[in-house]
Write a protein that binds this DNA or RNA. Structure first.
Length: 946
RNA sequence: GCCUCGGUGGCGGAAUUGGUAGACGCACUGGACUUAAAAUCCAGCGACUGUAUAAGUCGUGCCGGUUCGACUCCGGCCCGAGGCACCA
């Protein structure tokens, strides 16, 4: 076809698809279901972003292919339309946010359609639709009923100049986004959701889903579980006790003071009168420090003595109780036991205030006298040699480390004299350095492991390393050790992982510090318990277990876990969100509204600004706020806070399944049919919030038998961002935003789609390049204009076609779209040169169809086909045809390619070897000799060693 | 500081149970067609040596190791991006 007009054609096919309803997901189809989900966008005023096009197209390709493969595909779209931008725009213009949303949604929808995205529009949802948020509110009520929603005083960001509460997104560098004034924290009673109750399941169930590894690790880190113990400390002369959390109960004997966070509830009860003034001052200061300041002033620790003492339950010692803001009230119990000898922070605090330090842990290896053996070396290559001898803390085992500043390379052993082996040289040198005469060589750890030792510390970066050996110093009177015994004895030292464990750790560092005279006296690693009564001699892991058991037996504490994850602050002091369906009755307290009253609709207000008191604008509507208590019928006030915009997006994937249901959130039968989502695509920035929140809600709904699966998404993938041509993020302020509408109108939707799939690996960021778009345009023009049809296919074309089908099929499944596009190009290059049959061309059209559906439909009908390509079956490939008849086998000599042989693919190994050996170039290199070894890799290469 | 990912021509990138590094595209250079330009088509395109040939050397952030053979595996380092951060 000579003149392909993308504007006309794209519109035509979009209409035909809509007419034929080929993108509709059917609830009663016998076909296997496939639920393909893309994060629904916030319909901003700027319209669809070029980045949306990338992910929507990618999922569109998957959806279209799956349909052709015979799946009943659900690929829906909707709008996450509550949120600040619409509210801010409403404040500015006085327009109702819903009007703004309506307008923007229309633009977005049109844009999606102009791209030919195969969404099933019959299932469209909008979080701001009362018929939708009715169920968001309903879920909140269920959470409340199960005790998972509660009120708590929490700080919000408050701008003293604008007198409004700000969302975290509105606070930049501790300043108000609107006026630039410093923000402060203001305590407000807020609704909270107990996501922490689900923390363990949110970690553990990750094993049952297929998420990208980086997504899993990020979630695990965010939840941040750590195991430890809670220990109770009695306060002297008070009938109170302080509970602390520690991950190292094994160091309890070394706890020489306690530290409470300034906000700790017990502080005011236990302070002595002479300390009161100072304490109150410190508390006041802490309150005025922002989070930023508290973390910025990391290095210098401050604190105040309360005047009270606690009893260390392990040894009965009286230890002082301090307060300090390096202890956070929001983590653990808000109090710690300080073990300065084995914790860096406690150590620096103890140093500053001259508090006692007590060692209760020794490293597994200790520095011995041989350590400072640095000496000039006259005869050998080395000019300076140093040995470190580390002695095992209890056994008569030594680790000998040897390095040289002006080291040698592999294979060259320094320090060897005459014909002696390296081992002999080692023994000789140990004798010289230590005076020990009876030394047993145990094992040379060689070059493979030596770097383990020295990477442990930055100071020794400059040392190139020779060899590392294990020696045993045998007492002169002792008999030689049985070789078998040595083996067992030393197994722990040398067995792969074990040695890594030992060597990568703090022990060496500690020994090194002593040697350098920079020992800090704080050893925070794992080791062996000392000065700890019944724990003495136990390694850290065993000591922790023993201590945990002891704590329980004595009724002093228990093993427990702590999380970084905090409960979800669910209140926003804004207008444009779902009203929280609760009322506060003077008599009955907080009461949920009757479910029959849902949806609790947002009333109209005159002004959208938050109020001067920090309440939401809803607070100013008396008629709405004043209501009756659902419990006693007495006067009550409505909650005026609204939900965060994460609320609506936490369950939208469920609503697509039954978007028009008036009776329930969604029909259980339909949920059973469609859940879980098979493939969910979204941005990495949603990993720790939206993704976690929606998993939490789904799990909750699963627990109350509303949904059929514990995990909502079987697979989660992520797209990379599209950057501006200069490699910067696209933003309005930089003025480097690319408008997709413009590209669609100038080049066509197919060009934009294919370009975005080709630009780079799907999951990585790539910079926009207009020349690349033009290149894709050229490629599409070549497809459109192709007419080099022949009667019968050349074998090469047939074989390439089948290889291309295979590659594209696999690439789409693995989301390697860029290499699939390259395969299309290779195929086009081939058939332009050699020609192909109409049949082969049609097969090609079918596999490129998901990428450029409009052009393909046009060419397809042009070739006389009556049906839509979307209703065709996905093209299959024939493995036999995909095989090349003739291959080029490179001949390597000593690892370098010297010649290439063109041979039949099924050539016998013997024949190939003969052919290779008789090759002229190979002969030249062989110089009449026989090769030592011939390596043949089937169909890949032949390698001669001479 | 900790965790995660990444580093390959002028550019985007390709190559994974270790087996021809640079597919495909862009940019660039030369040629054909044209009065000319655009478009299109053909050829070249990592660096160096060499005679524009033949041939050879080097080359995937850096330093080592394993191997007949390393972008790929192992150890360490450097740089960049993202996340977390006084987390007891």
């Amino acid at each position: 076809m000579k003149n392909y007009d993308h504007k006309k054609s794209e519109k035509k096919w979009q209409e035909k698809w809509a007419e034929a309803k080929v993108f509709r997901a059917l609830d009663d189809s016998p076909k296997q279901k496939y639920y393909c989900l893309i994060e629904f966008p916030y319909p901003s005023g700027e319209g669809l972003h070029i980045g949306h096009v990338r992910s929507c197209t990618a999922m569109d390709i998957v959806a279209r292919k799956k349909r052709m493969e015979g799946f009943n595909v659900l690929y829906p779209m909707g709008w996450d339309a509550f949120g600040l931008p619409a509210e801010n725009y409403a404040i500015k213009t006085g327009q109702h946010p819903s009007k703004i949303v309506e307008k923007n949604v229309a633009i977005f929808k049109k844009q999606c359609q102009s791209l030919g995205l195969s969404f099933d529009w019959e299932r469209e949802v909008n979080t701001t639709d009362p018929e939708y948020y009715k169920w968001t509110q309903w879920i909140f009520l269920q959470l409340y009923k199960k005790g998972l929603a509660y009120k708590k005083k929490m700080p919000i960001n408050w701008c003293p100049s604008c007198k409004i509460g700000l969302a975290n997104e509105e606070v930049i560098d501790n300043k108000c986004e609107r006026c630039g004034a410093e923000t402060i924290k203001k305590e407000l009673n807020q609704w909270m959701l107990k996501i922490t109750e689900y923390a363990d399941r949110l970690i553990e169930d990750l094993e049952t889903v297929n998420y990208l590894d980086k997504i899993k690790t990020q979630q695990i880190n965010w939840i941040g579980r750590s195991y430890g113990a809670e220990v109770n400390f009695k306060v002297k002369s008070f009938n109170e006790s302080i509970k602390v959390f520690t991950t190292r109960p094994d160091t309890l004997f070394g706890a020489t003071f306690l530290v409470l966070s300034p906000e700790h509830e017990l502080v005011n009860k236990i302070i002595t009168s002479d300390q009161e003034k100072e304490i109150l001052k410190y508390q006041d200061e802490a309150k005025h420090k922002s989070d930023l300041e508290r973390t910025e002033l990391q290095k210098e620790k401050t604190g105040v003595f309360t005047g009270a003492y606690a009893i260390n339950p392990a040894n009965g010692l009286e230890i002082p109780i301090w307060i300090a803001d390096y202890v956070l009230s929001s983590y653990g119990t808000g109090a710690i036991m300080a073990v300065p000898a084995h914790d860096e922070r406690d150590f620096s605090f103890a140093n500053k205030y001259s508090l006692p330090v007590k060692q209760v842990l020794a490293p597994l290896f200790e520095f011995t006298s041989g350590l400072d053996a640095i000496r000039p070396d006259k005869e050998t290559r080395r000019r300076k040699t140093a040995y470190v001898f580390l002695k095992h803390w209890s056994e008569d085992k030594y680790l000998c480390l040897d390095w040289s500043k002006f080291g040698w390379h592999s294979g060259v052993i320094g320090g060897v004299e005459g014909n002696e082996t390296f081992e002999e040289a080692g023994i000789r040198e140990i004798k010289e350095e230590t005076g020990y005469q009876n030394i047993k060589f145990i094992k040379n750890l060689g070059g493979e492991l030596h770097n383990h030792f020295f990477a442990a510390h930055k100071d020794i970066n400059n040392y190139a390393i020779g060899q590392v050996m294990l020696f045993q110093l045998v007492d002169d009177k002792q008999k030689e050790v049985d070789p078998e015994e040595v083996k067992n004895h030393t197994a722990v030292w040398v067995a792969g992982k074990e040695i890594e464990k030992f060597l990568n750790m703090a022990h060496f560092l500690y020994a090194w510090k002593i040697m350098k005279g920079t020992e800090s006296e704080c050893f925070a690693g794992a080791g062996v318990a000392i000065n700890s009564d019944f724990l003495d001699g136990l390694d850290t892991a065993t000591a922790i277990q023993t201590m945990n058991k002891w704590l329980v037996d004595m009724g002093l504490g228990k093993k427990t876990a702590n999380y970084h994850l905090r409960d979800w602050v669910f209140s926003r002091q804004h207008y444009w969100g779902e009203p929280i369906p609760m009322v506060n009755c003077e008599k009955c307290g907080w009461q949920p509204i009757n479910e029959k009253e849902l949806p609790l609709e947002l009333p109209d207000v005159e002004k959208y600004e938050p109020t001067q008191t920090g309440e939401s604008p809803l607070a100013s509507i008396d008629s709405w706020v004043k209501t009756t208590c659902p419990n006693c019928g007495g006067p009550a006030l409505r909650e005026t806070d609204t939900m965060p915009n994460w609320a609506g997006s936490s369950w939208y994937f469920l609503r697509y399944i039954d978007s028009k249901n008036k009776e329930m959130l969604a029909d259980p039968e339909k949920l059973k049919k469609w859940m879980p989502v098979d493939l969910y695509n979204g941005g990495m920035e949603h990993t720790t919030l939206h993704l976690l929140y929606s998993r939490f809600w789904n799990k909750f709904l699963y627990d109350i038998d509303v949904v059929p699966t514990s995990e909502p998404y079987a697979q989660r993938v992520s797209h990379g961002m599209i950057l501006a041509p200069d490699g910067q993020k696209m933003s309005k302020s930089r003025g480097n935003v690319i408008n997709p509408d413009q590209i669609v109108s100038e080049f066509g939707a197919d060009v934009l789609r294919l370009y975005e799939m080709f630009m780079g690996p799907y999951d990585q960021p790539v910079a926009w390049d207009l020349n690349g778009v033009k290149g894709i345009k050229r490629f599409l023009d070549r497809i459109a204009a192709f007419e080099n049809f022949v009667e019968e296919d050349h074998y090469d074309v047939t074989s390439l076609l089948h290889r291309t089908i295979k590659k594209v099929t696999e690439d789409i499944d693995a989301r390697r779209f860029n290499t699939a596009v390259s395969a299309f190009m290779i195929f086009m290059n081939e058939i332009q040169a050699k020609g192909c049959t109409k049949d082969a061309f049609k097969k090609f059209l079918k596999i490129i169809y998901p990428f450029i559906p409009h052009l393909v439909e046009e060419l397809w009908s042009d070739l006389g086909e009556k049906e839509l390509v979307q209703s065709q079956k996905w093209q299959e490939y024939n493995d036999e045809l995909a095989i090349l008849q003739e291959v080029e086998i490179p001949v390597q000599i000593n690892g370098k390619v010297r010649a290439k042989l063109s041979v039949a693919v099924d050539i016998a190994e013997k024949d190939l070897k003969e052919l290779a050996l008789s090759n002229e170039i190979v002969q030249k290199y062989l110089e009449g000799k026989e090769p030592k070894k011939i390596i043949y890799i089937q169909g890949k290469l032949i390698s001669l060693v001479i």
